[in-house]
């Protein structure tokens, strides 16, 4: 699955210069960033989160995630967008809630991340 598929499923918008062909392997709906860091199977994941600050991109970077999607129409600040572009991290925003977006992506066959 690619970011373009996610974008279509969530009726989302790509923020900044993210590449729609970026591969997404799994998804994680989480607002506790330490929990995102908790397991090591976040590689190429899309992170669905209610947060919008800079550390969403930092954490995604640390775990080698592919994309961050901001929920309920939220948009991050320019500094976040700049950092994401620098790190090659794709940012999206959708009007859906984390719950609805998770349902949509599960339906498409995307799996969750394993936890310990």
């Amino acid at each position: 699955m690619t970011v373009a598929d996610v974008k279509a499923a969530l009726d989302a918008e790509i923020i900044g210069a993210g590449d729609p062909e970026t591969v997404v392997l799994r998804a994680c709906a989480c607002d506790l960033l330490s929990d995102v860091l908790r397991c090591v199977t976040r590689e190429k994941a899309i992170l669905l989160t209610n947060l919008t600050h800079l550390q969403t991109v930092r954490v995604a970077e640390m775990v080698d995630a592919a994309a961050v999607c901001y929920m309920r129409g939220k948009r991050p600040g320019d500094d976040v967008i700049r950092l994401a572009e620098e790190k090659g991290m794709v940012l999206l925003t959708t009007k859906m809630t984390s719950y609805e977006a998770s349902g949509q992506l599960c339906r498409l066959g995307l799996s969750g991340c394993e936890h310990d």
């Binding site: 506790l32 960033l33 330490s34 908790r38 947060l51 310990d116």
Partner: peptide
């Protein structure tokens, strides 16, 4: 409120 401080940090370090 920023998504930190839930008491998992040191545990994460230990895991890694």
């Amino acid at each position: 409120n920023l998504g930190f401080g839930a008491g998992m940090g040191l545990g994460n370090i230990q895991n890694c």
